[in-house]
């Protein structure tokens, strides 16, 4: 059938051949909101890598003579209640958000794919255990569980770090312990957010396995690995990519939420959520301090949601809404 089609193509004008990915890319480029999302994501990556070199201040540097200022030439977005440059802190907050998004997404994806695939392939008690674990995680109010985990483990991680330092002199930084907050947040959010991807992967594998083309492949004598690599992985990649994009935005949002509630990144670390709660008491007098990190957070979260929506339309054409 394919051979016949190919000869036909050579006889007549060769029509343009497109793969699924080319098709998806073209579909994505047509979606203006998704392009906005791509732009936001690229900007976030750029800022989180090069942020410290983009501004002349350090994110912890205080200037008590110039507190709560509005935008000026020296401080483009003004200064906060301790005289720290807002723009610098927002840039550093981008680094926090991106790092949390990246590591939590890697964590949940690895955990989700491994557990979901294990459940689908092994079945039996493995599958039952994975699904019950997902049910239990789902039964929790996720922000509260993540907040509880981070409060409980912050203390433990700090103790561990102090012991390591005493015994082996091993430490990353004497004065700044913000990296410990990062560790705690990574762990807490990964533990709370893995189940979506596990359920997705499991569902994809179980439904694909019943499809006729897999059955045909099996009837032709293909090995399990051929089926997995050539059919299961490429076919479940689309939904997984969408879930990863949305999850990335979700992880950043959760970090901001935890920091807003006071259980995430602690001062002097910079996080958009922490900046909002820090200045919330001053919304009447210095509204810009609350608005700026808020607007940046909103734009980034929106960008990732639009990108996720666009990718969903492009990669999963059978689910297209419109």
């Amino acid at each position: 059938m394919t051979a016949e089609a190919n000869t036909q193509h050579q006889l007549f004008a060769m029509p343009e051949q497109r793969t699924l990915w080319q098709d998806a890319l073209e579909q994505l480029m047509r979606n203006r909101l998704a392009i906005f999302g791509v732009f936001v994501a690229l900007l976030l990556v750029f800022v989180s890598i090069f942020g410290p070199w983009l501004s002349p201040y350090d994110y912890t540097q205080q200037n008590l003579f110039r507190i709560n200022e509005g935008p000026s030439i020296d401080h483009w977005l003004g200064t906060d209640g301790l005289g720290r440059d807002m723009l610098t802190r927002i840039l550093h907050g981008a680094r926090t958000a991106f790092l949390v998004g990246l590591i939590v997404t890697i964590g949940t994806t690895v955990l989700g794919v491994v557990l979901g695939a294990a459940g689908a392939f092994l079945g039996g008690w493995v599958d039952a255990t994975v699904m019950r674990m997902a049910d239990i995680t789902m039964a929790f109010p996720d922000i509260l569980l993540a907040a509880f985990i981070s409060v409980v483990f912050r203390e433990k991680v700090l103790e561990l770090q102090l012991q390591l330092q005493e015994q082996y002199g091993w430490t990353l930084s004497e004065s700044n312990r913000v990296y410990l907050d990062y560790l705690v947040i990574f762990g807490a959010l990964t533990l709370v957010q893995w189940y979506g991807k596990a359920r997705l992967v499991r569902g994809q594998i179980l439904s694909l396995r019943e499809k006729e083309f897999i059955e045909a492949e099996r009837a032709l004598g293909a090995s399990n690995w051929t089926i997995i690599l050539n059919h299961l992985v490429p076919n479940s990649l689309g939904p997984l990519i969408v879930s990863i994009t949305v999850g990335f935005g979700g992880a950043m949002l959760s970090e901001a939420s935890l920091s807003f509630l006071g259980v995430g990144i602690q001062p002097p670390g910079a996080s958009w959520g922490e900046m909002i709660s820090d200045s919330l008491g001053q919304w009447r007098f210095n509204p810009h301090l609350v608005l700026m990190p808020g607007i940046v957070l909103a734009i980034v979260v929106l960008g990732f949601n639009f990108l996720g929506d666009g990718l969903n339309d492009a990669l999963n054409p059978e689910q297209r809404r419109r």
Partner: peptide, 9 residues
């Protein structure tokens, strides 16, 4: 998409 602690303020 925008969290309550941005819409609220």
């Amino acid at each position: 998409s925008i969290p309550a602690y941005v819409i609220g303020p």
